[in-house]
Design a protein around this nucleic acid. Structure first.
Length: 559
RNA sequence: UGGGACGUCGCCAAGUGGUAAGGCUCUGGGUUUUGAUCUCAGCAUUCGUAGGUUCGAACCCUACCGUCCCAGCCA
């Protein structure tokens, strides 16, 4: 990167002050996803922030699954989340943590609160609880069960734990203030009855702690110094601190909130992404059109490009929407620097170079793998009398702006000769099926001797020896710049053309054994990454190669 | 109408009393065997609005306007 120092964000400033004052000895953070879906670009921000903070200040970051609600969770998600965090390039401290590991301690602390007269078992139904809570402008009413005796509360709470009651029959609430301006403080529920198995604790529990009750205490148990979360939890801060102050916790963590990442044209809500998967709008969580980490990975986005993007957007408390172009810039920046080049014809049009002798027409040419990075080596290109160019690179009659092949005009074949087109051959429908052209002698590495330079450069592939492949082009999933803003129905703005599959594409022979760790730049086309649907086969006839277009090249050609 | 947070260029985002960084986008020029890359130049007399304090304000004060979050036994 650069040696220009980046200004610190507000959380970094807090940490530097805490370190300077001695309040914090060693920074401890945590990334705390609930395993109820796949991670998406929004989580990448939290991951980069939490792990990045720990790394920057020589501390550690835990990966903690906030698994307090077995209803929505699944072991499939914990595995995918671990995989995604690792892929993004981060390493968590020690073993993976689970909020469920603290259920015993949390239970003991709940009993402690009861004994202190600060928690009570409430028999109000869910509807009654809502009525008693009041609303934004009216104070709530105290629950009639608020003054139960300590003994009765302890007994009832134990019986809740033992599975004696139906789901929702009772709850454990903390006694704070039913008239508090902050709704979170109106005797929040900290334990609810759910007679159901948990993916980590099996059938041990019939009651599960709420997020509010489990999160801060989990932080304290793990010695988290700076608990950073998104802005919607700012409302919970007083409650977070209430527990820390009223419980004999081993440490005092502090919560700081930042605004979540929003990118236009994207939807980032686990619930909504799940709907796209469940209704088969996309082909799974890792569909390359999804803004999930796994989808982006499959599409060809590099971990570095995602990290750079997150870094470029900053950390503040301002609600904003980042432009998609900023993400695209980070992806292109990294890929341009690191992708090997290759030529691939997406929509083949045969060109016969009639002045190349028919006998022994094959010629081997050498091309650099990267135009600016010699150290990346070279590759061999096969040149023949018959080649393919892209249909879009030929017009019978061009115009000043069309810098490609035109009848009677010249064009440079990338890394090869200059050619001039003579004739277009059409089928009975009038469609051009072949072009007759000729090479200009002596133009390999040189300009034509007659001084008539070609207008442009186009890519090509031998029609005799090439690699057949399928190419999948992706466009945005939604046509609306803010698909789900203001409660809009995002399913109404789905882009019907978000996937275009091209078969019979022709790649140069270096693509026979393609790279599986970084996209190629198909010159003049964009960046393309090998999809996992590909099938390798020693027998090339049976090999099936599929490439995903990660992103096109920047295009400043005003058509 | 209760409580909380936030408003600096089209989009991100520094700046927190001394006279508006940077990135993305966009526009124009140069180099180029990728209409890519690279490179040069341009792009806020102005910081939500209106007053006030001050020699001096985006930064301090007051009022107003706008946006977002909170009424799950979700996280």
């Amino acid at each position: 990167m650069t040696d220009i120092e980046k200004p610190l964000n507000f959380i970094q400033k807090v940490i530097e002050e805490d370190l300077a004052s001695g309040k914090t000895k060693q920074v401890q953070t945590r990334f705390p996803p609930e395993p109820n879906g796949y991670l998406h670009i929004g989580h990448a921000k939290s991951i980069c922030l939490n792990f990045g903070l720990a790394k920057k200040y020589g501390g550690q970051c835990n990966l903690r699954f906030d698994d307090t609600n077995p209803e929505k969770e699944d072991i499939e998600y914990v595995e995918s989340i671990k995989n995604d965090v690792k892929w993004l390039g981060f390493e968590w401290a020690g073993e993976v943590k689970f909020s469920s590991s603290y259920f015993d301690q949390l239970y003991d602390w709940a009993v402690y609160l009861i004994k202190e007269g600060k928690a009570y078992v409430c028999d109000l139904t869910q509807e009654e609880t809502r009525e008693y809570r009041g609303n934004l402008t009216e104070a709530g009413k105290k629950s009639p069960f608020r003054e139960r005796s300590v003994e009765e509360n302890i007994d009832l709470f134990a019986r809740m734990r033992d599975g004696e009651f139906q789901d929702g029959a009772r709850s454990l609430r903390v006694k704070i203030d039913m008239a508090h301006g902050n709704m979170q403080m109106r005797d929040p529920i900290i334990y609810r009855i759910k007679n159901m198995e948990h993916h980590q604790t099996g059938d041990k529990w019939h009651i599960y702690p709420s997020y509010d009750y489990a999160h801060g205490q989990g932080d304290a148990i793990e010695g988290v110094t700076h608990s950073v979360c998104t802005l919607e939890f700012a409302e919970h801060l007083p409650l977070y601190n209430w527990f820390i102050e009223n419980l004999p916790v081993p440490a005092v963590p502090r919560q700081y909130e930042f605004s979540r990442l929003n990118v236009n044209y994207l939807v980032t809500s686990k619930r909504k992404l799940k709907q796209l998967v469940d209704e088969n709008v996309v082909n799974g969580w890792d569909d390359p059109r999804m803004p999930t980490i796994s989808g982006m990975r499959r599409r060809g986005y590099t971990a570095q490009s995602i990290r750079n993007f997150i870094e470029s957007t900053g950390v503040t408390r301002v609600d904003g929407v980042v432009d998609m172009s900023q993400l695209e810039f980070s992806v292109r920046e990294d890929l341009n620097e690191n992708s090997p080049r290759a030529m691939c014809i997406l929509r083949p049009l045969k060109v016969t170079l009639w002045n190349v002798p028919e006998e022994n027409s094959t010629e081997y040419l050498v091309a650099p793998n990267h135009p600016q990075r010699e150290e990346l080596g070279t590759r061999t290109l096969i040149f023949d009398r018959e080649i393919y160019i892209d249909k879009e690179d030929f017009q019978e009659e061009g115009n000043k702006k069309f810098k490609r092949l035109v009848i009677g005009k010249r064009v440079r074949l990338r890394n090869a000769y200059v050619i001039e087109a003579d004739e277009a051959i059409k089928d009975s429908n009038g469609e051009i099926i072949e072009v007759k052209a000729r090479i200009i002698e002596g133009t390999l590495g040189n300009n034509p001797e007659d001084g008539i330079k070609p207008k442009g450069v186009i890519h090509w592939v031998s029609a005799v020896q090439n690699v057949d492949c399928e190419v999948r082009l992706y466009d945005r999933l939604f046509n609306d710049i803010a698909p789900d803003a203001g409660g809009k129905d995002y399913m109404q703005s789905l882009n019907p053309d978000s996937l275009e599959v091209l078969t019979g594409c022709k790649g140069e022979v270096s693509l026979q054994a393609p790279s599986t760790d970084i996209p190629y730049q198909f010159e003049r086309e964009g960046y393309y990454f090998l999809d996992e649907d590909s099938d390798y086969d020693q027998d090339l006839e049976n090999q099936k190669l599929v490439f995903n277009r990660t992103i096109g090249l920047r295009d400043t050609w005003d058509k």
